[in-house]
Design a protein around this nucleic acid. Structure first.
Lengths: 152, 152
DNA sequence: AAATTATTCGCATAAATTTCGCGAAATTTA
DNA sequence: TAAATTTCGCGAAATTTATGCGAATAATTT
């Protein structure tokens, strides 16, 4: 399915997907044409799921990140699905995980400032009958934020 | 610093940075040349921090994600800095936040399976004198995982 | 307000990169 | 080991990106 050269390509593009096929070619030891073809295949097969630019939170005026643990009133599948959808539709929520343990979900939420976050919680949580409670953790420092995977 | 057209460009490329300047041109209403020049500027100014390919965790054989809350023995700056470095250097850790609240850090860790995660905790936590304790939460479903920001 | 200066724009064109056709090499299957 | 399939890499074509430059727009100064 995916061989050693694919892995090398993935290692590089998951750090920088703007490398040209000639540059990748040198790094993985294959002609630019073949590298290009492999990239196409990796994208077609969704081994590369997507290609994105990461925008600076500071530059865009959203310097705050919160980690929010959410507990639902009941673990009923229709309630869970409704919550999942609301989370997907909210652009202030960067990521959302359905998890084991005391709480049901953990969200990553960005905000302009505390007042803005406050407003978000009002809209998103207090208005919502399905939500039993939530707990906010403030991110003081982002040591690392990536989707990189160790590939062999 | 950044105007309405820049924002439109950012909105698009944070979802898909493989769009050509001609495609972006249509979407934002500016010539391809100008779009290209703006992209360059946005990258030079680190408003676009980086450009990455997101690799499928399943395809690469790392289907498990854990959220790990870590508490250090003492909140001494040298200990904190040492921990930060170890986290940055570990490719199994996708993201790491220094946070307020009961724990000091929250990490996102990927693993092949539970045994693999078990091995990681041994290496990373039990070996480490600086760590008082940690709590693992297993991700059952990744509803959303992005670095997208709401840009106006 | 008018004039000056500085930016940004978009066209034309040059440079670079990606895509495609094709035969050769390598790998897989029979 | 022969046949079939896949992958390779070269060269050419097509597409995309980068650059030069005058025109238009916006900002600053007087």
């Amino acid at each position: 399915m995916i061989d050693e050269i694919d892995k090398k390509i993935l290692q590089h593009v998951q750090r920088n997907n703007q490398l040209t096929s000639a540059e990748l070619s040198e790094r993985v030891g294959l002609s630019p044409t073949s590298v290009q073809r492999r990239l196409h295949r990796l994208r077609d097969q969704k081994i590369i799921e997507r290609d994105i630019a990461v925008v600076s939170t500071a530059a865009i005026g959203r310097p705050l990140t919160m980690l929010v643990s959410v507990e639902l009133e009941r673990e009923r599948s229709d309630i869970i699905d409704r919550f999942k959808k609301s989370v997907r539709d909210c652009s202030k929520v960067q990521s959302a995980y359905y998890v084991t343990g005391e709480t049901d979900f953990v969200l990553t939420v960005t905000a302009i400032d505390m007042a803005d976050y406050e407003a978000f919680t009002r809209d998103f949580f207090y208005n919502n009958q399905d939500i039993k409670g939530f707990k906010t953790t403030v991110v003081m420092d982002r040591i690392k934020a990536s989707f990189e995977l160790p590939i062999e």
